[in-house]
């Protein structure tokens, strides 16, 4: 049986890892073409990267403020107008650098796991 504290430590590590990778994952999704926040969530959930939805909105907002992504408003049949996110050229550059960083990390993890 794990103690509560152990559980918390593990949970915390997982959260930190997810958070680190979340930005990268979202930028990857947006880079595939314009996408709506809810669809991003669905993809992230499918990939088990995110459990709760609320967190994504501040993240998207921050990405936009950094000039990495931008959005356009589009009408929706079902509900309120939706924000569709696209990658800026600055975002593209950032994604590339992230990608190379990821390669390094992946290699490192791969290496250490052996």
């Amino acid at each position: 049986m794990k103690t509560e504290e152990q559980e918390k430590t593990i949970e915390n590590a997982q959260v930190q890892m997810r958070k680190g990778i979340l930005e990268f994952a979202i930028l990857l999704l947006i880079s595939k073409g314009k996408i709506y926040a809810n669809d991003i969530l669905v993809r992230l959930k499918d990939a088990n990267l995110v459990v709760v939805e609320g967190t994504i909105y501040p993240l998207l907002s921050r990405l936009r403020n950094s000039g990495l992504v931008n959005y356009t408003w589009e009408e929706s049949k079902a509900g309120p107008p939706r924000k569709y996110y696209i990658l800026t050229s600055k975002g593209g550059d950032f994604l590339k650098s992230c990608d190379s960083q990821w390669q390094i990390l992946e290699n490192a993890v791969h290496l250490f796991k052996k």
Binding site: A37, E53, G54, Y57, L60, S61, N65, A78, G79
Partner: peptide, 24 residues
Amino acid sequence: KIGSDVDKNEVMTDIEMSIAEKLK
């Protein structure tokens, strides 16, 4: 929680809209 964000109003709107969609 998101108090430090530059445009927290916008984020809040996003969250509210998302909730609205789900309730809808």
